[in-house]
Computed example of a mutant assay.
Amino acid sequence: MLRSMYSGISGMNGFQTKLDVIGNNIANVNTSGYKKGRVTFQDMMSQSLSGAEGPVMQGGNAIRGGVNPSQVGLGSQVGSIDNIHTVGNRQTTNRALDLALEGDGMFVLGEDANSDGNFDLSGNEVSFTRAGNFYLDDDGYIVNPDGKYLLGAVDSGEDGAEPALGRIQIPEDAESFSIQGTGEVTYVDPEDGATIAGTIRLAKFSNPGGLQKLGSNTYQLTANAGVYTDDDNNFNSIDDLVIPGQDGGASVVSGALEMSNVDLAEEFTEMITAQRGFQANTRIITTSDEILQELVNLKR
């Protein structure tokens, strides 16, 4: 059988994957905090028909020049599927619990707290997101649509102790609340007046493309995310999270949402190129089939 047929099949498979990614991008064009995907391709191994040869020397003189290798490629393959973490457009909602991040960083979400109500960053109960549509649950905790708690620095309850990473709670009898650009969540207590409920902390990554998608606009930490940490180089304490507006972290904008960074014009253009690439590879298969048919007809 002809090698070109198998090259065409590999090309078709690659462009099918590209169309799958494009379709997912378009489906999430209005998803808050969504980061678009991108497919890159690589050539597969090549079959060598002849190797390279250097010049032939005789008596210190070259009597014949060198020869380049002769190789036939065996098709293409998907090289990577990247998540592009550029900042999406900001949409104003004027809702206090809609939070957008202006800069680098992600909100930290948690579930299954420890017995003391705090969270361990090294565990699997922590995830990250850029989608800032938050709500208050029945106990006054700030949560995302799936009920995961928005984490930040809260009072540990011990005198003189450092703040702990925990859930931010606004009491039921609070008259009002606000969220500052530094992540500070304050509310007005009927008796004590303005009170700090906690400060939102952000996770900052040198390689956000290394995060793994979990669905529901959330990401999971991986060994290749390049997380910002303190001197011990372990992501396990509140010191490994940045305060909004400090250490290169994003500032928090209340009353707005970061929308998807999908550009429809770009996606439709990529869809056209993927479709034409798929058609070209099908043409390779049909042309190879015609050649094989001619070979079979030689018997007649």
Rank of each mutant, 00 (worst) to 15 (best):
R300V: 02
R64A: 13
S46C: 02
K18R: 14
K35N: 03
I170F: 09
G183E: 00
A203Q: 14
G37W: 01
P171M: 09
I22E: 05
M259L: 09
D139S: 10
D112N: 15
K148Q: 15
T86K: 03
N224Y: 10
S260T: 02
I179M: 08
I285E: 04
Q180V: 03
V72M: 14
Q77H: 11
V78W: 01
R95G: 08
A113R: 09
S254F: 07
V185H: 04
S48F: 11
N94E: 10
M271R: 04
N13T: 13
A256E: 10
Y34K: 06
E270D: 14
G140L: 08
N94W: 08
T195A: 09
L165M: 04
R130N: 13
N68F: 04
L298Q: 11
G88E: 03
K18G: 01
R64P: 07
D43Y: 08
E175W: 10
N61L: 13
N30P: 01
Y187L: 11
N89G: 11
S251R: 14
R276G: 04
L150D: 07
G14P: 04
G198T: 05
A161V: 10
Y187D: 13
F278Y: 07
S80H: 00
G11W: 10
E102F: 08
N234C: 04
G215Q: 04
S127A: 10
A164P: 05
I284R: 01
L241N: 06
G117K: 02
S80M: 03
F235S: 11
L211M: 09
T273G: 00
E158I: 11
A250V: 03
G11I: 08
I9P: 05
R201T: 07
V56P: 03
F107R: 05
N281I: 07
D98V: 12
F15R: 05
V296H: 03
A250E: 04
S80D: 12
E267L: 04
F128I: 10
K148C: 08
L295M: 01
A27Y: 00
A250F: 05
N236F: 08
L221C: 13
V108G: 06
L292H: 00
Q77M: 14
P145I: 08
S4F: 11
G75F: 06
S206G: 15
E294G: 01
K213A: 15
E294S: 05
R90F: 11
V253I: 14
G103N: 02
A250Y: 04
S50P: 10
R300H: 06
E53H: 10
I272A: 01
G11R: 07
P190F: 12
E290P: 00
T287R: 03
L241Y: 10
Q16P: 03
V108P: 03
Q279D: 08
G73T: 05
I284V: 14
S115Q: 10
G59D: 00
D231F: 14
A27M: 01
I284Y: 07
I200Q: 03
M271S: 01
N114V: 04
G51K: 08
S216A: 12
E158V: 14
G157W: 13
I168G: 01
D173V: 13
F278G: 02
D263W: 02
L151S: 00
T93Q: 12
R3C: 09
G60D: 05
E158P: 05
T269L: 01
G73N: 06
M271D: 04
E158Q: 12
S254N: 07
Q58T: 07
P190K: 15
N234H: 11
